[in-house]
Design a protein around this nucleic acid. Structure first.
Ligand SMILES: [Mn+2]
Ligand SMILES: [Mn+2]
Ligand SMILES: [Zn+2]
Ligand SMILES: [Zn+2]
Lengths: 139, 139
DNA sequence: AATGATGATGAGAATCTTTTTCATTACAAG
DNA sequence: CTTGTAATGAAAAAGATTCTCATCATCATT
């Protein structure tokens, strides 16, 4: 994941794009909002406009470098496309995100789509729950 | 699904609530946005404020009368809770929504949540694709 | 390395969805 | 019917994202 990926996407290799890609690679949080990216860049002394962050993230998504998720909360979160597809589990208390992939579910989805005459292009599976942290448990 | 359901939710039986519930029952579209509801009510000659529509839909959701979905598109859609849980398939071209339920997937989700130490409280599964309408097919 | 066409950026305005505020109105219990 | 309290509508506010446009940076070409 380097500047060549930006170039291959038909985009100029600019300072904001380089820094945003670096941040997505090095951030301790895999799943970040545009606002998160903006603020983390500021913390790093990079004064990149919020509009640019939104623009670049959308371009990276189109280029297949980044995936956008619509978790609950009214704002999108983004993550760098490492390896392959996976689904998500989100703690409704602390917001912790776990990733998983289940071949059985993936297979059934394709079958179900087909049986309804749909050509599946994407899917979104999010499990909401209480994570194992005692502070997040129900009782 | 009648006024008693509103009362049982601890809410006063008001004109806006009655009309919104009626509309959700009788609308030809099962999945509607707040804006949709607002406009359809206007078409019926009911001048109910948009803020009230949002408030009531949220209250109905809390009361378990209505379910909210975060499909792509930046706005939530709501549907009356008839019968039980189901998942969704959305055509990325025409927006058509199909519903389905798959016991295998439901079961695997519970197992996966448990294996990650999560207490599942909800989940969202949306398949995006091209529906069988020729206008929506890839070619 | 200098040039120049074109794409990219930043700031702020604009847009879109949803929530909040607050004065007024309507429900429902007595 | 009276009356306390919840509900409503209008408008403002808030939050997320996109757009506009003047300025700037990148990069293919000289
Ligand atoms: Mn992920
Ligand atoms: Mn449905
Ligand atoms: Zn948690
Ligand atoms: Zn379609």
């Amino acid at each position: 994941m380097d500047n060549q990926d930006i170039r291959k996407a038909g985009l100029k290799v600019t300072h904001p794009r380089i820094k945003i890609l670096e941040l997505l690679e090095n951030s301790s949080q895999r799943h970040v909002s545009a606002e998160d990216v903006y603020k983390m860049l500021l913390d790093n002394g990079e004064e990149i406009g919020l509009a640019t962050v939104y623009r670049v993230l959308t371009q990276f998504e189109t280029a297949g470098l980044v995936t956008r998720h619509n978790f609950e909360g009214g704002h999108a979160v983004f993550e760098l496309d490492r390896g392959g597809h996976h689904d998500h589990m989100v703690c409704v208390v602390c917001g912790k995100v776990e990733e998983f992939i289940d071949p059985t579910i993936e297979k059934r989805q394709r079958e179900i789509a087909k049986s309804h005459g749909f050509e599946m292009v994407d899917h979104s599976l999010i499990i909401y729950g209480h994570c194992s942290n005692p502070k997040c448990s129900v009782g």
